[in-house]
Simulated assay, not measured.
Amino acid sequence: MNSLADLAPQLDRGSDMPLWSQFRDSLRTVILSGELSVGDKLPTEAELGEQFGISRIVVREALADLVRSGLIYKIRGQGAFVAAREREEDFVSTVLGFSDEMERKGLTVRTQVLSQELRPATPAEAQVMSLTGDDPLIALKRLRSVDNELRLLVETCVPADLAPGLHRVKLENRSLYDVLRRQYGLRIVRAERWIDAVLPDEATAELLGLTAPEPLLRIESLAFNQNGRVLEYYKALHRCKSSRLHVKTTT
């Protein structure tokens, strides 16, 4: 196999972006461009480190993140391989974030942050998130597109004590779940979601670029950490005209 470093975007050691995330994005670019096919084996950690001029620790962290997002998989004793990418949207039935799940399928996600603030929880938010009184939370409103198509309008709340300073973190074109995991050590282990169909109001239709009336799927979600505490509460309006949601169930 030719050196992946010859095919991938170069790493910028003067950038504020960590080397592991630059390396992860470089590998993702190579995979999604078709230079690597489904089932292809990646070079070993040592080989990747030599090709890109980085440590095995950096390589290992990047590969672990690609495994979490489903873009590659590992077989013990055999190495890492390129995974198949699905066409349907499975994020409603997994604890993957929207960005991770879309990127796993080779799609480009863009996120516009409409608002990001630290404020007291409303009585309704406090009740559903099991908060006390007017406990502070970080409230986000984001507009998300997939392959340049506006797809999702989502309002998210995260308890402020779990992610202090999150209201000051730059989240434009970033995965919230990745930030929570990397910067705060927070991990979602389960979620409960409710889905129904609604017609958008005029403001929502304008934000999503709807030129004609179109029903949207409304998704309400509570996500929990390993201690059973609500880590995230969101309400999303999802445009499904060019996609469909896929839900897996088990007994």
Score class of each variant (00 low, 15 high):
M1N: 08
D12A: 07
P18N: 00
Q22R: 04
S26L: 05
L27I: 08
S33G: 13
G34C: 08
G34Y: 08
V38A: 06
V38G: 00
E45S: 14
A46T: 12
E47L: 15
G53P: 09
G53C: 08
I54E: 09
I54H: 10
I57W: 07
V67L: 01
S69M: 11
Y73S: 05
Y73R: 06
G77E: 02
F81S: 05
R85S: 11
D90E: 15
S93N: 02
T94C: 07
F98S: 00
M102V: 05
R104S: 14
T108M: 11
R110K: 15
R110H: 15
V113M: 14
V113K: 08
S115K: 12
Q116E: 12
E117W: 03
P120N: 12
A124I: 15
A124N: 13
E125A: 09
L131F: 08
D134V: 10
D134T: 12
I138N: 10
I138S: 03
D147P: 02
E149K: 14
L153F: 10
C157W: 12
A160E: 06
D161R: 15
D161N: 14
L162S: 10
L166S: 04
L171E: 01
Y177N: 08
D178H: 13
V179W: 10
R182T: 10
V189H: 09
W194G: 05
D196S: 12
D196H: 11
L199F: 10
D201M: 10
E202C: 06
A205Y: 03
E206R: 14
P213A: 04
E214I: 05
S221D: 11
S221E: 13
S221G: 09
L222E: 04
F224M: 06
N225G: 07
Q226S: 11
R229A: 13
L231F: 03
Y233I: 11
L237Y: 09
H238V: 09
R244G: 07
R244K: 12
R244W: 09
K248G: 08
T250D: 14
